[in-house]
């Protein structure tokens, strides 16, 4: 059985949906709305890349939504103080890295289960933000909007940036030793240790990277609107986990790649605009997304059942 079966099948599913849209609702393919859609999802893609790494290394991070919010607000406050974007982006990334390092310390250093650790940090960060911000919006200076470019140029920049990051991660996870270590640790941390890989350090770094990407994604998000609201990013964690899992990254670690996560994200992101164009009411979106997640895992379950050979 082909090793990339899942990635290919998700891409085919995406292709089929796009094909169906081309036949049923050609209006879907107007360039401007499509560009807006892709731009909106660009920050999510960056976070999904990080989440793919996290899940490949057999961890989970449900605090990304909160990290994203904290970084957004911090970046917004810095930008509002007149910091240039050239400094805001690294600052947000650094804040994200710090938050990720906290998770990483708890998970890799103390060896606590990541699902509970990040559940706790998610609540702490979210509520801490609410405490400080009290629900207030941050107004951004005009110079921040679309990096001070025209809207179209800004949109293309964002999409380009997200795709560039995707490319970097896609290649690095395949061709750089550190990327393969993430797979090794996710498959079997003890075997990795015996092979001379510092498993705990790899885990820690993956969490730091996740935070950094959340910080970058946050700045990619705030440039799209004149204000930052503190609730931004709530629910993001489930959206990216869903995208990554639909894209064929195994929750049991060691399997999958960011390309699949990309296809999974596009598939889920298409649902809402596709519904609009097919004149189905938009409140079915979550139902369909849930069904897609279940379908993806059921397909995987059936496949594994079939290919389960001599091994127990």
């Amino acid at each position: 059985m082909n090793r990339y079966f899942r990635e290919i099948s998700v891409t085919i599913a995406l292709g089929l949906i796009l094909l169906a849209m081309a036949v049923l609702a050609p209006g879907f393919f107007q360039p401007q709305p499509l560009l807006s859609l892709v731009t909106r999802e660009a920050p999510t893609l960056v976070v999904a890349c990080g989440m793919a790494l996290i899940i490949i290394s057999r961890q989970i991070d449900i605090s990304v939504g909160s990290q994203f919010s904290v970084c957004s607000i911090c970046a917004g406050l810095l930008a509002a103080r007149g910091w240039p974007l050239g400094l805001v982006v690294p600052a947000a990334a650094a804040i994200g890295a710090l938050l990720g390092a906290c998770n990483g310390m708890l998970v890799a250093g103390l060896r606590l289960p990541s699902i509970v650790v990040t559940l706790a940090t998610m609540v702490i960060l979210r509520q801490g933000l609410n405490l400080v911000q009290q629900g207030a919006f941050v107004n951004l200076p005009d110079s921040v909007q679309w990096f001070g470019l025209s809207q179209a140029a800004g949109q293309w920049t964002l999409v380009g940036l997200a795709l560039a990051l995707l490319l970097v991660f896609g290649l690095a996870m395949r061709r750089v030793a550190a990327g393969r270590w993430v797979y090794a640790v996710g498959t079997d941390a003890e075997a990795a240790r015996l092979a001379g890989i510092r498993a705990q350090l790899v885990t820690f770094m993956v969490f730091v990277l996740m935070g950094t990407l959340a910080g970058i994604a946050a700045t990619m998000n705030i440039v799209q609107s004149p204000q930052v609201q503190p609730a931004v990013g709530s629910g993001l964690e489930l959206k990216v986990i869903a995208a990554v899992v639909v894209g064929g990254v195994a929750i049991s670690g060691g399997r999958g790649n960011v390309w699949g996560a990309f296809a999974g994200l596009l598939l889920l992101a298409c649902v809402s605009p596709a519904l609009t164009h097919l004149h189905i009411e938009a409140y079915w979106e979550k139902t369909i997304q849930g069904a897609i997640i279940l379908l993806a895992v059921v397909a995987e379950g059936l496949r594994q059942r079939k290919s389960k050979g001599g091994r127990e």
Binding site: R3, V176, A177, A178, R180, W181, Y183, A184, G186, T187, D188, E190, A191, A192, L194, A195, I197, A250, G253, G254, R255
Partner: peptide, 21 residues
Amino acid sequence: ALFAELTVAENIGLRLEAGGA
């Protein structure tokens, strides 16, 4: 002590290759 999800070639590679990250 092998990596179940990885290929045989990669398992051998991970054991034998030295060098930086």
